[in-house]
């Protein structure tokens, strides 16, 4: 039997988390759920395609904020985290945060009872982050249009680190933790 879990609980609420790696967008879209604010600086040329997000949850609940600079982006993120109207806030980081900025986001999330997620480029993590994840897609020889990913917890302030291989089931909207490719079943446990 495959263990499965709802996508949310492994990111502690009232905290701000970080994710990096090539599958960071999928990680974020998966965590976003029904209602989220996605903060993306206006000059970023890449397009986040709502049709691609659709398998992880409805893109209609996502509000997109396009601030002009990272200063504005941080202000918007702090405001939204503190307010609590959007339970999940995704922030794309383009330069590393210092401790003060990271800490302010943490305090805002605590005040508003919301969860934040920063999508960071590799190696731009902030010391204030609660957890940091690296999400990489994994080749799945068995299935077409697979969403097999490797989630590695590379920082955790209140728990252990670990590696999980997960697959998203778009039909049931469940996240399945699967054994790594080439290993025996049972070698992976639930993330905490």
């Amino acid at each position: 039997m495959r263990p499965s879990l709802k996508p949310k609980p492994f990111l502690r609420s009232t905290r701000v988390h970080e994710v990096c790696g090539p599958a960071a967008f999928a990680f974020a879209a998966l965590c976003a759920g029904k209602q989220a604010l996605w903060i993306r600086e206006a000059w970023l040329a890449d397009i986040v395609l709502p049709q691609g997000m659709e398998i992880y949850g409805a893109p209609s609940g996502i509000l997109l904020a396009r601030p002009a600079s990272q200063i504005d982006a941080l202000a918007v993120a702090e405001e939204a985290l503190k307010d609590g109207a959007a339970p999940f806030v995704i922030l794309e980081i383009t330069r590393p945060l210092d401790l003060r900025e990271g800490r302010r986001l943490q305090l805002a999330a605590k005040a508003g009872g919301t969860t934040g997620l920063c999508i960071i480029p590799e190696g731009m993590g902030s010391n204030a982050a609660e957890t940091r994840w690296r999400a990489t897609p994994v080749f799945d020889p068995d299935r077409e249009d697979s969403t097999l990913m490797r989630w590695e917890s590379i920082k955790n302030k209140s728990g252990t680190l670990g590696v999980w291989y997960v697959r998203w089931d778009p039909q049931t909207h469940h996240l399945h933790v699967v054994p790594p490719v080439g290993l025996q079943p049972g070698s992976a446990g639930l993330p905490e």
Partner: peptide, 26 residues
């Protein structure tokens, strides 16, 4: 909850401009 969200949009909008808060439409 809709009122709350609108208040949040207004507050963010005073900083980055109300037209910069968007939604996806197919």
């Amino acid at each position: 909850s809709a009122d709350q969200l609108n208040d949040l949009i207004t507050r963010i909008g005073t900083r980055i401009g109300l037209e910069n808060i968007q939604r996806f439409q197919p």
